[in-house]
């Protein structure tokens, strides 16, 4: 497993990894997530950290806790929204970095398009 970065809380890094797994389709809507303990062993972290992860995912509406049964992924609709959110965030990061280097919007658009579909490099 990929080691954790030291500059971001571990619970957030695990949230990101789980959200990516959801968006990739490794976890499907309605699926039951492993127990806190199982997840803690899986990631090699404190069980309190996983409890926090589950609380935050629930707060975001990505999961729901069913009493006595555990933690489940919510419906496909919410997960589609999550997919758009994560995509938007990744694009934001790219745009911020390109803007910081002084690229114009047109240049960014052209670079991305060239990169994706080939064509002359700028």
């Amino acid at each position: 497993m990929e080691p954790f970065s030291q500059n971001e809380p571990i619970y957030r890094q695990i949230m990101d990894r789980l959200c990516r797994a959801v968006v990739r389709g490794n976890l499907v809507p309605g699926e039951r997530l492993p127990s806190v303990r199982e997840m803690a062993v899986e990631f090699g972290v404190n069980p309190n950290t996983i409890s926090r992860v589950y609380q935050e995912l629930e707060r975001l509406g990505v999961t729901e806790t069913r009493r006595g049964q555990g933690c489940f992924l919510t419906d496909a609709e919410r997960i589609a929204t999550l997919r758009r959110e994560l995509s938007r965030r990744a694009i934001d990061r790219l745009l911020t970095e390109m803007a910081a280097m002084g690229f114009s919007r047109e240049e960014i658009l052209r670079s991305v398009s060239d990169h994706l579909f080939g064509g002359d490099n700028p």
Partner: peptide, 14 residues
């Protein structure tokens, strides 16, 4: 520990 990681101190070692 969470607060330390959030503060960008370079983890516990930092």
């Amino acid at each position: 520990v969470q607060g330390i990681q959030e503060s960008g101190a370079g983890g516990l070692v930092g």
